[in-house]
Amino acid sequence: MKWFFEIFIMECKRVLSYRIDFWLQFGVVVCTEIGIAYYLWSSIFESEGVTSISGMSFEQILIYYAVVPFIVRLVKSSDDFGISREIYEGGINKYIIYPVSYSATKMIERAAFSTMGILQMIVGLAFLSFFIPIRDYLTLENFVVTVAFCGVSFLLYFYMCFCLEILAFWFDSVWSLGVMLRFVTMFFGGGMIPLAMFPDTWQSVLSYTPFPYLFSMPMRIFLGQANFSEIFKGVIVTSIWVLPIAALSYFILNRGFRRYTGVGI
């Protein structure tokens, strides 16, 4: 089990050694998100003359858009097509020899990246709370539960992403598939608009998909909109989703490895 830990620490160090623009970069993302949301929603609230939309006040919406990039980062981790690149460039060769699981290694690497994201989130939110009344809505308890739930969402997204990336064994280039996954999960997972604003029929259809458990559920917990039984149910349903997707990814990976070594290196 020690290698587990070693890889984790190594990856954490790597993330910390990133250049300063990597960290600033994320700041630009958050500010843009808040800026656009502020103007878009204030224009809607103004023209409609309402105080809440789908049960969310202007303040809550603003907090939603300020926090959701952090949640997305925790859940998606570094989906930078590193796995497919390893397959194309042959970096995967060493895992055929090493006595460690390929998927586990990749998962630990990304978990480390996400863990660093928690630090980033704490610092970022502390800073943002000077401008946006985050503290009025957030309790420490909710914060901890949110981060914990992100762990489950992380697994869900990891296996979805992993399934697509290892298609690189068969296709010339799969980054476009990865980008499609980003678009779809961002929109239907609540990364672009709170899912509560979707028309009712859409929402009920979505509840039969894994998407709402990616970003929307953690956000609801963060804002204190989910009660205990909902959270509990969320964990169960997400886990049920993870199982078949993970099983699928192992199936694909096995076929892929077989095909890969069969062709010869």
Binding site: L40, I44, S47, S54, F187, I193, F198
Partner: peptide, 13 residues
Amino acid sequence: MFFKVIFAHTSLL
């Protein structure tokens, strides 16, 4: 779709 959702809540943007 993004704007379809938005216009479910407002008549003018």
